[in-house]
């Protein structure tokens, strides 16, 4: 299961839906794998604005991968930079390049989000403590009836 996917997962228990502690799910006894997926910047740029950066940082720290992650969402940083320095020339240049984000940073993010996956382990809800097992990269999100 890609880190991209896990960064969108929340606890499925009804009472946890309203609680901020139910996101992100915390990793326990996780073992990782790396698969190679051809780099696709369009998809990455499409998905970047949706990622909750603080949560991703928490996850990366838990897995000991913080080094892979810039301190803030490159897209946010780009927006901030555009607002701060109103140098029209710079922006135009950035737009002509298409992204305006350093390719190196994007490649690193691609490796982290798309190519790094969890094979075995558990995802634990920070609110209710329910454990979702992950086996062979497949997450088990079936709930016992009393929690639905």
């Amino acid at each position: 299961m890609k880190l991209l996917t896990t960064s969108f997962l929340t606890c499925a228990v009804k009472t946890c839906r309203s609680s901020p502690a139910s996101f992100p799910l915390h990793f326990r006894d996780a073992s990782l794998e790396k698969i190679s997926i051809p780099f696709n910047s369009t998809f990455l740029l499409n998905i970047l604005p949706r990622i909750d950066w603080t949560a991703l940082q928490t996850t990366a720290a838990e897995l000991g991968l913080s080094a892979m992650l810039p301190s803030e969402n490159p897209q946010d940083a780009l927006l901030a930079a555009q607002e701060a320095g109103e140098g029209g020339m710079d922006i135009a240049e950035d737009e002509s390049k298409g992204t305006g984000i350093d390719e190196e940073v994007l490649k690193k993010l691609w490796t982290l989000l798309m190519e790094t996956g969890v094979v075995e382990g558990k995802l634990v809800c920070g609110n209710c403590g329910f454990e979702y097992p992950v086996k062979e990269g497949v997450g088990n999100f079936l709930l016992p009836p009393h929690l639905v």
């Binding site: 299961m1 499925a12 996101f23 696709n40 909750d52 088990n140």
Partner: peptide, 24 residues
């Protein structure tokens, strides 16, 4: 080719465990 798929064992009738605004 896309980035492949991730699989979940889950019951749709129990609700989907995803954050708001996740999917295209």
């Amino acid at each position: 080719s896309g980035g492949g798929g991730d699989l979940f064992l889950a019951d749709m009738g129990q609700g989907l465990p995803f954050r708001p605004g996740t999917f295209d």
